[in-house]
Design a protein around this nucleic acid. Structure first.
Length: 209
DNA sequence: CTTATGATTAGA
DNA sequence: CTAATCATAAGA
């Protein structure tokens, strides 16, 4: 499975193994995306750990992918995508929501995986500070809601997943994976309908759409 | 400088 | 279906 290093992390209810190998990220997003399903997203927040099991992602496949921010070349906003694999690309959308991406490879090819939904398994109380009055299965459902639950924003843009405070760890393998076209595509031409969204089948923690 | 818009969301 | 809300990128 993953090349990892043993490390204790994140509190009493969760014990797992951090991804500690940059090579793991140094693959196409279409290969990394399904592997992320079932894995744990860990934010070592100053007020305590927030941990979630990833249940929904989307792959963005580089400059030729018209749906990707990389399609228009490097800009200050998307620069992290053009950097080395294993870092975060976080941006603001619609003036109010942040979206979290894992930058992949191969090499410096600007590919990335958008994390769209997770099941919060630790730090729910912390996550709820920014997500009041939502049922548990909606706490981190949808990219904007996930970023809010994990308290992530552009301060985390470019952060190294091997250094923290945001990391990935091994989780539990999904039983079945579902694929659909990506959400919210409008002017991506032939790329609009490609099945680059991956979900854990029948998981109630997915986004609505 | 001005302007259009978006890998969203909640609510009518 | 639309409003909210603003950083960003592209155009004048």
């Amino acid at each position: 499975m993953n090349a990892t290093a043993t490390a204790a992390v994140a509190g009493p209810t969760v014990s797992h193994t951090l991804v500690a190998d940059r090579g793991w990220f140094d693959r196409s997003a279409i290969a990394v995306a399904p592997d992320l399903l079932g894995m744990l997203l860990v934010h070592d927040h100053r007020d305590g750990p927030i941990v979630g099991r990833i249940v929904e992602v989307e792959a963005y496949l580089g400059p030729e992918d018209l749906a990707s921010h990389a399609a228009r070349g490097v800009t200050p906003r998307n620069a992290a995508m053009f950097g080395p694999p294993g870092h975060l690309y976080v941006y603001l959308i619609y003036g109010m929501h942040h979206c979290l991406n894992v930058v992949t490879g191969p090499g410096r090819k600007p590919e990335a995986v958008l994390i769209r939904a997770a099941e919060i398994i630790e730090g729910e109380e912390l996550a709820r500070q920014r997500r009041v009055d939502v049922p548990s299965h909606r706490l981190a459902a949808g990219p904007g809601n996930l970023a809010a639950a994990f308290d992530l924003d552009r301060r985390h843009d470019g952060a190294d997943l091997l250094t923290g405070p945001v990391r990935l760890a091994t989780g539990t393998q999904p039983t079945r994976i579902e694929r659909t076209p990506r959400v919210g595509m409008t002017t991506a031409g032939a790329w609009t309908d490609r099945p680059l969204r991956f979900l854990i089948a029948d998981d109630r923690h997915r986004s609505r759409r």
